[in-house]
Design a binder for these strands. Structure first.
Ligand SMILES: [Zn+2]
Ligand SMILES: [Zn+2]
Ligand SMILES: [Zn+2]
Ligand SMILES: [Zn+2]
Lengths: 131, 131
DNA sequence: ATTAAATTGTTATAATATAACATTTTGTAA
DNA sequence: TTACAAAATGTTATATTATAACAATTTAAT
């Protein structure tokens, strides 16, 4: 794995330190003091980081999170749990699940080489708050 | 299931007839001749149609497709296959898969009440074209 | 008839993402 | 070490997707 470029490193560090998924323009705002001034600079770094599997995009939220697995095969098999109340997102690392989905074949005979799964619900904290 | 309103019906008909997922602004363009002139009118109808399970949003494409199952429990359990070459999208109706995912519990103990799964690959047509 | 909920209409604006082009840096191989 | 190609950067403008705010109208149940 090659080193990250300057912009990629700045943006990865920010996402990696964040306890929650970050949106592109909130990233842009945060890194402006470090010389990254335009949306494209952010999006290009994000694209690359996604491509090499260091971060993932949470599609339903248009937000980015650092890979918590180090075992996602370059973002080809991703699963997340999302709390609909506090918006906490956790990457799921479950070998049974990933095996099941990686091997899954539908009737149409199509061969899949990638999947993304998002679960929604209430995290433990939010469940207890409501009761 | 109550009847759809005028705007909802117009927009559902369009999506239902389309062989491919439709994007909001392409829908807007198509229904302007029928008196729907503003983005919000489209988005409101889309929101409602998603809510009642008549259509689904393909999150990775920001596009909408009619439900092909009639058995999606109000969009609480959705799975799609997406061809990365021709962008054909098919809703997967596989009881084994839906059972597995509906019952899935991760170590974190979080209880899920909804999921969305998107598979990516090459459809049969596109596979044979490349060989 | 009364009323609440849902839907519609409308203008403006926010948020997300890419096009196009020029320049610089980095890695690699003659 | 020079020459070349690939990757990354910088910059301006613009395209695409989505929501805020407010007023009016329609629908459906008492
Ligand atoms: Zn990961
Ligand atoms: Zn929560
Ligand atoms: Zn469906
Ligand atoms: Zn295809």
């Amino acid at each position: 794995m090659q080193n990250l470029s300057k912009n990629q490193q700045i943006i990865f560090d920010l996402i990696d330190k964040s306890p929650e998924p970050l949106k592109a323009y909130s990233i842009l705002f945060s890194v402006q003091k470090r010389g990254i001034k335009a949306p494209l600079q952010v999006y290009r770094a994000l694209d690359k980081l996604v491509e090499i599997g260091k971060i993932h995009k949470i599609e339903s939220r248009n937000a980015f999170i650092a890979c918590q697995n180090s075992s996602c095969q370059i973002s080809k098999a991703t699963a997340f749990s999302i709390c609909e109340s506090c918006e906490k997102v956790t990457e799921i690392n479950n070998s049974n699940l990933s095996k099941y989905l990686t091997c899954f074949k539908d009737k149409n005979g199509m061969k899949y080489n990638k999947y993304n799964l998002e679960f929604f619900g209430l995290c433990k904290k939010c469940v207890s708050k409501k009761s």
